[in-house]
């Protein structure tokens, strides 16, 4: 499928495109950071791990019904940024987050807001699959149970089945739902974790390299799923596969050493990148 720019309004960019290219400074982001119908709005977000400044002044909108992909070299802060969006960095004692992050105009950085409902609304699939050491069924049923989403065992069974189906795992595991989630292969575990996230129907889904261990068929299933989810949800996906970014996302953000270097429609980023770093990264990969 083609990346489309339908949701992106023509607002002025933070920096005009013309003066760039030669200038290696990455202090400001090139391209359109805003979105016509923003769901999440990040402004001047900074993250430190002790003294390591991992995210530097990143401002970015994530729009309703849009898939935004985040690309960049390893260690550039993609996962760190993603984890800011549902306050998962709270669990790392050395991490310090500053700046403003809003979900539907509500400031989530506020110490007074309750992270529990926030995380139920903003779900996350982690870079490394982390199934619970419970049965496959219990892995999926965990979220619906704690949120009381179903009223009967039959409903729960159905929710488990649909979640697994959407993640393309149902056929492989339907006969062994009692087996331990940790006994699955790496790729199966990754899909189990996707199914687990879907089971609680979050409004925003953050996916950190969800297809890194998947074969082309399973990858295609997940990409189809992402496309389908877009109708209802807002999705941010980190990926090292540029083809995947091009296939599933409408907007793309390029990170480099903690800076958000460039963001724009996926078409523009891949066909006419404005910034030298972006171009190097993309052409380096595409040869």
């Amino acid at each position: 499928m083609n990346a489309s720019a339908e949701a992106i309004a023509a607002k002025p960019s933070t920096v005009t495109a013309d003066k760039l290219g030669q200038d290696q400074s990455t202090a400001t982001t090139v391209g359109e950071i805003t979105s016509a119908n923003p769901r999440m709005r990040c402004r001047e977000v900074n993250v430190w791990y002790d003294d390591n400044h991992a995210i530097k002044d990143v401002s970015l909108d994530i729009g309703q019904n849009e898939v935004i992909s985040m690309i960049g070299p390893s260690g550039c802060g993609k996962s760190t940024f993603l984890r800011c969006l549902n306050r998962m960095n709270d669990t790392i004692s050395t991490a310090r987050v500053e700046g403003s992050i809003q979900l539907d105009d509500q400031e989530i950085q506020d110490k007074s807001i309750d992270v529990v409902p926030l995380r139920a609304r903003v779900g996350m699939v982690f870079q490394k699959p982390n199934p619970f050491p419970k049965s496959i069924y219990e892995n999926i049923a965990y979220g619906p149970r704690i949120h009381g989403l179903t009223n009967s065992r039959a409903e729960l069974d159905e929710l488990v089945e649909t979640s697994l189906q959407r993640a393309g795992l149902w056929k492989e595991v339907k006969d062994r739902l009692d087996a331990s989630g940790t006994s699955l292969s790496g790729g199966q575990q990754q899909r189990l974790c996707i199914a687990r996230t879907l089971s609680v129907s979050p409004e925003v889904i953050l996916m950190d390299e969800p297809c890194s261990a998947l074969d082309p068929i399973a990858t295609a299933i997940i990409e189809e799923l992402i496309d389908e989810l877009r109708a209802q949800y807002t999705i941010a996906i980190v990926t090292h596969s540029m083809q995947q970014a091009a296939r599933v996302s409408q907007r793309t953000a390029y990170f480099h050493l903690g800076d958000l270097v460039e963001v724009g429609t996926t078409d523009d980023i891949f066909n006419q990148p404005q910034h030298k770093l972006t171009e190097d990264y993309i052409t380096g990969r595409f040869g």
Binding site: A120, Y142, G143
Partner: peptide, 21 residues
Amino acid sequence: QAMRDGSYALGATQSETIRRV
């Protein structure tokens, strides 16, 4: 820690995470 993260990311509270994971 990944077990805790997985549970928190589903919107579980700390005591739910401790009891059930």
